[in-house]
């Protein structure tokens, strides 16, 4: 609050200074008529900008409406519910983002997930797949919608990094990735922020975690030293 006040006072000083400076300069060179033309021009420029932005500046990123958010939240809850029951039926093709195939020797597949890296938030699951030959593992990465403040940032979430090393499957999160958005909100943040705050708005629902599923043949055992990986039916 004090810093805000300081800024406020500073702005006050700046404005006073500018006003006194500019009024003296403008008095000399600008007649009222010219100033009126200038201001009208500025307003027209603003109008043109408005028209241009509203007709041509199709924003590539859509802001989800409240109803959209509601359905997504509902979906997310059902997904979490399924997840609790180790039910794989929610892992549909819709959410599949990438698959990897790895070959390995022996009947044991040790999996190491580097969950100490910041931003590691995958649930790792395994299931036995009769179609899988021995010595082969199919890793699928399922990602669910991730909404931040009305914006779907799913596409921005980096994929996990998976590789075989010394006959071990390593799952790693990529280094932190930064996304910036520029949002036009033609209203008062000061008012809006306090109001949402008061109403408990800002639906910051915890989204369902993304899932990595490792399919292996039933004759293979998955060695999980960290105790992270759960079995999926």
């Amino acid at each position: 609050m004090t810093s805000f006040m300081m800024l406020f006072l500073f702005m006050l000083l700046v404005i006073t200074f500018l006003l006194s400076k500019f009024s003296r300069i403008t008095q000399k060179f600008w007649s009222p008529r010219k100033i009126i033309i200038g201001i009208t021009g500025y307003l027209l420029l603003g109008l043109c900008a408005f028209l241009y932005v509203s007709f041509f500046a199709e924003s590539p990123i859509q802001v989800l409406s409240g109803t959209d958010l509601k359905t997504i939240e509902k979906n997310s809850h059902t997904i979490q519910a399924y997840d609790q029951e180790y039910n794989a039926s929610y892992l549909t093709e819709d959410h599949l983002r990438k698959t990897w195939e790895f070959d390995f020797q022996g009947t044991e597949l040790p999996v190491i997930s580097d969950n100490n890296t910041p931003g590691f938030h995958f649930n790792v699951r395994y299931r036995y797949n009769d179609d899988m030959p021995a010595g082969k593992a199919l890793v699928s990465y399922y990602q669910f919608q991730d909404i931040v403040d009305g914006i779907d940032i799913s596409a921005e979430i980096p994929l996990p990094h998976l590789y075989m090393e010394q006959n071990e499957l390593v799952i790693q999160a990529l280094p932190e990735h930064r996304v910036q958005y520029y949002r036009a909100k033609a209203s008062f943040m000061l008012l809006d922020f306090h109001r949402y705050h008061e109403q408990g708005g800002y639906t910051l629902f915890a989204p369902s975690s993304n899932v990595i599923v490792i399919d292996i043949s039933p004759h293979t055992t998955l060695e999980d030293r960290q105790g992270l990986i759960q079995y999926l039916q």
Binding site: T117, P118, G119, F120, H121, D146, V148, D149, I151, I153, E156, I157, P158, A173, L174, P175, E176, H177, R178, V179, Q180, Y181, Y182, R183, A184, K185, A186, S187, F188, M189, L190, D192
Partner: peptide, 22 residues
């Protein structure tokens, strides 16, 4: 912008620069 909001989501750091009338 005149305000910014940041959210950390896993290894994604989302930052919004907000351009309002304030």
């Amino acid at each position: 912008g005149n305000a910014s909001e940041g959210y950390g989501r896993g290894n994604v750091n989302v930052q919004f620069f907000i351009y309002s009338l304030d």
